[in-house]
């Protein structure tokens, strides 16, 4: 019995190892074949700096702006039962399953200069197309399910009787939400925010359709590859991956440290 289990274990380790290799090898290969000097040179280019900064800032803005509506929606979906709730739960996952270029096209129909929304924006002095505002909308569209799903899980895990007790202690519903539900669901929400931001940061398909310029880094990588070929694209790709990974690791460490602190409390 235990021998059979060992063989099974070995098979699993082997298959799992292959998969990890599949993820790591292309990245690692690219790092090895890129000359460090060229990475430094690329980092000095203003165009590249601007693009990376644009990508990071728009993805953060997309996450923060859309979380204002996403977190309340997640709370409603976690707590309330209403007709067609299952359909709503399906709708929030649509952006994950449709091709992102298709999402871009659909969005463009809503926010282009000819649309009602586009006209409102124009009268306010800006445009979604080929602007950071459009990039934010495209990033948010494709990444919002990650936050919604994590936040729904978080709110479901908050014991309902704690919210009820808080009401009987004299707290208004809003106060209960901000002092009980939100802090207790915060771990999941934070993970969701990081996931949403990461997904927005790496978005290409929807963004390129709405805003080729100003150029976010994924679009820049595509453009350089098209115009100059693989070798010339590698430095900016490596640089962008390094920055993304660094921010990701730091964010995860911060959220994990917070988690550990909470765990200590709960033991």
């Amino acid at each position: 019995m235990s021998r059979r289990f060992d063989i099974l274990n070995l098979v699993f380790v082997f298959l799992g190892g292959l998969l990890l290799l599949f993820i790591i090898a292309p990245l690692f290969g690219m790092f090895l074949t890129t000359v460090p000097v060229s990475i430094f040179d690329t980092a000095k280019e203003t165009e590249v700096q601007k693009s990376i900064w644009l990508t990071i800032s728009t993805s953060i803005a997309a996450t923060l702006i859309f979380s204002i509506a996403a977190i309340p929606l997640a709370y409603l979906l976690a707590r309330k039962n209403f007709p067609l709730k299952k359909i709503v739960l399906g709708i929030i996952n649509i952006p994950v399953i449709i091709p992102h270029s298709a999402a871009g096209i659909a969005l463009l129909g809503v926010i282009s200069r000819d649309s009602a929304l586009g006209k409102i924006a124009e009268s306010l002095g800006f445009s979604f197309v080929n602007s950071p505002a459009g990039i934010i909308v495209a990033m948010a569209f494709v990444s919002i399910p990650y936050l919604l799903n994590a936040a729904i899980d978080g709110f479901i895990n908050v014991p309902e009787h704690l919210e009820k007790v808080a009401l009987t202690l004299g707290a208004s519903k809003a106060r209960v939400f901000f002092t009980i539900s939100l802090p207790l669901a915060w771990r999941n929400i934070l993970t969701g925010l990081i996931m949403m931001w990461g997904r927005g940061l790496s978005e290409f398909g929807a963004v390129i359709i709405i805003a080729y310029h100003p150029m976010v880094t994924p679009v820049m990588i595509f453009e350089r590859f098209n115009s100059f070929g693989l070798q010339y694209t590698k430095p900016v790709t490596v640089l962008f991956i390094c920055i993304c990974l660094a921010i990701f690791i730091v964010m995860n460490l911060i959220s994990r440290r917070k988690r550990n602190a909470e765990n200590r409390e709960n033991k």
Binding site: H161, V165, L167, T168, L169, G170, A171, L184, E265
Partner: peptide, 18 residues
Amino acid sequence: VQNRKIGIVYQKPTLFPH
């Protein structure tokens, strides 16, 4: 609920864990 002057203590402690 929040304006009724009625307090409730449940079977299991309902302290706020955070």
